[in-house]
Write a protein that binds this DNA or RNA. Structure first.
Length: 826
RNA sequence: GCCGAAGUGGCGAAAUGGCAGACGCGGAGCACUCAAAAUGCUUUUCCGAAAGGAGUGCGGGUUCAAGUCCCGCCUUCGGCACCA
């Protein structure tokens, strides 16, 4: 039943349908128009993977990104807030295989769906700046990037033991192996010797680590520490050990050169080339032992290898190294606890002061010699290596020194003798970028029997992916592109003889490592991005996305940025000035997943509560970096609040442009207190508190309309307009409709919040509190300009205070006029 | 093991060293209604009838005053981890 006198009902779905087409025309978020001289800001949300329709996680990320973007638009900035799709990759390929379709169709269908959902979700994207990484117009520049790296010597091929996912049938970067499992499919990752393409990220290890300091305070400290951990720099020394029966010495890396006198044996990684060589020159029995051991090592996977309680195993090669400081002959052993690809694949073992070496020594009956007196029990007795600080003993010239001095002295001794040098090592490995899959950017290299690796000339780019039709995409260990014979067989760009294209595709993290620059000119066919635009807009002022990318994506993007800087394409060294990591949306305590059966469908939430209520809930649930448990929050409560705000605007009866200065004092004060507090809260990412402040203002507004002031009071209009503008960051449909109800033209998103009139906030009196021994005992109203003496006197007169003091005597009285008195007794 | 973050009502959460629990969810009550829904208002940390007392993971400390700063624990979460 409709009530004729009160026909205005808040109908969120009607409002959504009403405003969408109007906004399509209005385009309030177009950026970089000719003659637009608003100051520039670049706000970027991590672009989605088109694996289906948008889900709750996207809804949170884009709600929060939008608060920031819309805030700066409202502040009068020319905000670039683009969107794109990270659309190459395995899920599309796997879905295609499963359904017998082309990955392209699946991908672009999903993109269309997500795009429509983003429009409905009222994302403030600039729809003129859109990119899709699987478009040739994008990946052509991915190939350009590869060739720039190649020409600079930063892209190279090598054969080594790589991470291999037996289920995806492709190699994986180190970063894509999580706890020994494939990050995509959770299969146990194995090792395989393959020739693969790498980017030389290790050349930038120092800068990637040191420049993290410049992000301090602007990136979550968690992400900074994760990156530091991942790069893992350690300082120490390279030490050369002569090997009996070998011309070349073997170099080992150690962080504890001070303990060199305690090195009682050497351990070589069982799966290293050095181990094979050393074993080859022993007797038949040892060779046999080594071969059997190596076989066992190769069969164990990372999961087994990483088990902490795993007993140490190894084989004594019966060969000897010479300790460079004391000439001692020490046995050489092989074991799998030494890694082939860290340091030099060989270590000096100091069992007394390293627990791993100790366990190994115990297991194989090797000598243990204490060279640092830490004041703890002898490791031979306690069974625990002493790894801490102490005084050097049994160490010749080092005796009596502390750890730090001993390290320095040992290094200078080694350097003087030419037996070693100070150095550092990184945990970070080079980035393996080739993949044996179809749906990715083809690597723009031709292999020629006479010329070797030949880069495809820039004017022949893009090397377009051949049609998937007729190709067998099923994982089989080699790239499906190998089956596209017309595509593979080309003539060498250099000599013209028959040659073959490289059939691998690039890791999709290459695509996303520079996409933020492509938004500057997403449709350009002549350059990856214009230098001048990069100067004007980049780096990204505010990046928003999940912490899941804390290592991989952010590290790669930082690396590529530094390379592009060194190649003189850009003048900055860090891509993302400020970073916000939003939390995850959980359901009943755990991440949403099909197997748990706890998936909340975004579309259902939107159909039930409306876009605005879902967006508002995302912002109001808590601090943005915390997880949101959907079971704990109330989208219906948000909807209720929005209706309440909308009704208040609907109640306003004064004319547009009514001068607020004659309005209700109390409500004006509430409005201007809000105006003072709101901006800093948003800029400090305290969106939940910002929403709470809007709620307070709506409560005050309601009270004023229903109370003495009445609906026609000018302050009521001022408050309602303030609510509409502020609310547009969180609930754009409701805010726009309120704005219209208040008599304005569409475009609340561009309506600026005025500065607070602080003169309205000056109080003549305040509530003073009186504490006795820090406990609240009384409060009363006092003039703001009350003197300390007068306030003290008032406090001491209070009955409640007298009672609290009792028969104790006063030791001290602290007065902070006009707000506080604290009486300390003794 | 190493590094980091966090522990506050029934729940999500607020709180420049200065009134702990803003704002909301949920609960209770009142008004409107024949009734319900919706809406508006009141109330809601715990114990206590009240006066009052207790209270921010635990134990200490600094301070007139500590959720906040310092020291030591406990628990949870995240990252790294046989990296020499």
């Amino acid at each position: 039943m409709t009530d004729a006198t009160n026909e205005a009902e808040y109908d969120v779905f009607a409002i959504q349908d009403k405003w969408l087409p109007i906004w399509d025309d209005l385009r309030p978020f177009a950026s970089g128009n000719e003659g637009d001289n608003r100051p520039k800001k670049y706000v970027l949300d991590m672009f989605p993977y088109p694996s289906g329709d948008l889900h709750m996680g996207h809804a949170e990320a884009y709600a929060l990104g939008d608060v920031i973007s819309r805030y700066w638009v409202q502040k009068g900035f020319n905000v670039m807030h683009p969107i794109g799709w990270d659309s190459f990759g395995l899920p599309a390929e796997n879905a295609a295989i499963k359904r017998g379709l082309d990955p392209k169709g699946w991908t672009y269908d999903n993109i269309a769906q997500q795009r429509a959902s983003m429009r409905r979700y009222a994302c403030s994207f600039d729809w003129d700046r859109v990119l899709i990484t699987s478009d040739p117009i994008y990946y052509r520049w991915n190939q350009w990037l590869f060739l720039e790296f190649y020409n600079k010597g930063l892209a190279y091929r090598k054969n080594s033991n790589v991470n291999w996912c037996p289920s995806c049938q492709t190699v994986l970067a180190n970063e894509q192996v999580v706890q020994g499992l494939c990050e995509r499919c959770d299969s146990v990752v194995t090792k395989k010797a393959l020739t693969q393409w790498y980017f030389k990220v290790t050349d930038y290890a120092d800068r990637l680590l040191d420049d993290l300091d410049t992000l301090e305070g602007n990136w979550p400290s968690k992400v900074l520490s994760m990156q530091r951990n991942w790069i893992g720099r350690s300082y120490g020394a390279d030490v050369q050990f002569e090997i009996e029966g070998r011309d070349e010495p073997v170099t080992v890396f150690t962080t504890r050169p001070d303990t060199l006198f305690g090195a009682t044996f050497m351990v070589v990684a069982a799966d290293s080339a050095l181990a094979a060589e050393l074993a080859a020159n022993t007797d038949a029995a040892t060779e046999q032992n080594f071969a059997e051991y190596l076989d066992m090592v190769k069969q164990s996977n990372d999961i087994e290898r990483l088990a902490t309680d795993r007993p140490k195993t190894g084989v004594n090669l019966g060969r000897f190294a010479i300790n460079p400081v004391n000439g001692e002959r020490i046995p050489i052993l092989v074991s799998d606890y030494v890694l082939a690809d860290y340091g030099h694949g060989a270590i000096m073992a100091v069992p007394a002061h390293d627990q791993r070496d100790f366990d190994f020594a115990k297991a194989l009956g090797l000598p243990i010699r204490v060279v640092v007196d830490t004041g703890e029990e002898d490791p031979n007795v306690s069974g625990t290596a002493t790894v801490g600080e102490g005084t050097m003993v049994n160490s010749g010239a080092l005796n009596g020194l502390a750890k730090k001095d001993a390290i320095e002295k040992m290094i200078s001794i080694l350097e003087a003798d030419g037996k070693g040098k100070k150095t550092k090592n990184f945990r970070l490995r080079d980035w393996l970028i080739s993949r044996q899959r179809y749906w990715g950017t083809p690597i723009p290299i031709v292999h020629c029997d006479t010329c070797g690796e030949v880069p495809v000339p820039q004017d022949q780019l893009p090397v377009e992916l051949p049609s998937a039709e007729g190709l067998d995409l099923k994982p089989k260990g080699t790239s499906p592109l190998g089956g596209a014979e017309d595509w593979v067989n080309v003539s060498c760009p250099k000599c013209g003889q028959p040659a073959k294209r490289d059939t691998d595709t690039m890791d999709t993290f290459v695509d996303s490592s520079w996409y933020f620059l492509r938004f500057l000119s997403p449709n350009s066919t002549t350059e990856a991005f214009p230098k001048q635009a990069a100067k004007d807009w980049a780096p990204v002022d505010q990046y928003v996305g999940g912490v899941t990318h804390a290592i991989l994506h952010l590290l790669y993007a930082r690396f590529v940025t530094k390379v592009l800087h060194d190649l003189d394409f850009i003048d900055f060294q860090e891509p993302f000035t400020r970073l916000l990591n939003q939390g995850m949306v959980l359901m009943s305590g755990s991440a949403m997943s099909k197997s748990r059966g706890n998936i909340v469908a975004l579309s259902e939430q939107l159909d039930t509560h409306g876009v605005d209520a879902v967006r508002l809930t995302m912002s109001f649930a808590g601090p943005p970096e915390e997880d949101i448990d959907w079971a704990d929050v109330s989208p219906s409560g948000s909807a209720k609040f929005l209706a309440r705000a909308w009704r208040a605007a609907n109640d306003v009866t004064s004319a547009v442009n009514t001068d607020a200065s004659t309005g209700n004092k109390e409500l004006r004060k509430a409005t201007h207190t809000f105006l003072r507090d709101f901006g800093p809260l948003i800029e400090g990412f305290k969106f939940n508190v910002g929403v709470a402040k809007i709620m307070e203002l709506v409560n005050a507004l309601r009270k004023a309309i229903d109370g003495e002031a009445g609906a026609s009071d000018p302050a009521v209009r001022e408050a309602a307009e303030t609510v509409a503008k502020a609310l547009s960051l969180f609930a754009p449909y409701t805010a726009e409709d309120m704005w219209q109800k208040l008599g304005h033209e569409p475009g609340v998103a561009l309506a600026q919040l005025p500065d607070a009139d602080l003169s309205l906030l000056v109080e003549s009196s305040v509530i003073a509190v009186v504490q006795v021994d820090g406990k609240l005992r009384d409060k009363f109203e006092v003039p703001v300009d009350i003197t300390e003496d007068a306030l003290r006197e008032l406090a001491l007169k209070s009955d409640a205070v007298k009672r609290a003091i009792g028969d104790k005597s006063i030791a001290n009285t602290i007065v902070r006029a006009p707000k506080l008195v604290n009486i300390a007794t003794k």
